[in-house]
Amino acid sequence: MSQDIKIFISYSWTNEKIIKWVRDDLATRLMDDGIEVVLDQWDLKEGHDIYEFMESMVNDPTINKVLVVCDKGYKQKANEREGGVGTETRIITPSLYKETNQEKFIPIVAERSEKGEDYIPTYMASRKYIDLSNDELFVEN
């Protein structure tokens, strides 16, 4: 990937572990590789409208990729259209189906169930994903 790539990371604030993983492992590593990353933890400031921020990230023509970090909490909130994830799902879903660039929205499997099943929400279930659900896969992928 080159420096002209700009990524937005969509995820659920399920717990401190996933919040830290998104920021410290995923986003920071991408930035270290020279990729511009937009992350709410860095770019959403006090006083900003949360929903406008999410909508602008999905619709921003300078955002090349939207990484959708899928864990149990994200799947549940997306499928039930709950909270910020539910709002993002309402924004992303039409773009996902009409988007000519099929590579813009990429599911990232961050967690699996005890049975090894992924937590990809229904609206993205048919998409090819990147599996980063364990340290070995994270390094490999």
Rank of each mutant, 00 (worst) to 15 (best):
M57R: 11
F8D: 04
I130V: 09
E99T: 15
K104T: 00
S95G: 10
K45H: 12
E88C: 08
V66L: 02
I120T: 06
L137S: 05
Q76I: 03
I5A: 07
E136V: 09
F138D: 03
L137Y: 07
K104M: 00
S133I: 02
Q102P: 00
G47K: 13
D60W: 12
G47M: 13
V38G: 10
V58L: 10
I5W: 10
E88A: 08
N101Q: 10
L96Q: 08
C70E: 00
I120Q: 01
E52D: 12
H48L: 09
Q41I: 14
S126W: 01
T62Y: 07
E55S: 08
K128R: 09
Y11Q: 05
A78E: 03
I120R: 01
I63Q: 08
K17C: 11
A27Q: 02
Y123C: 04
N15V: 02
L132D: 04
V139N: 08
E103C: 06
V68C: 10
K45L: 14
S126H: 04
G34D: 12
S2W: 14
A125E: 07
I9V: 11
K104G: 00
Q41N: 14
N141T: 07
Y97I: 13
V109H: 00
K20G: 15
S12A: 15
F8G: 01
P121W: 01
T28V: 04
S2A: 15
F105R: 04
K77F: 07
I5C: 14
V37K: 14
Q3W: 13
I50E: 09
F53M: 09
V22K: 02
L26G: 02
Q41S: 14
I18E: 10
P121A: 03
F8Y: 13
E114L: 10
E80Y: 13
G84E: 09
Y97C: 11
R127G: 00
R112H: 04
V68P: 00
T122W: 08
D40G: 14
E136A: 08
I50T: 09
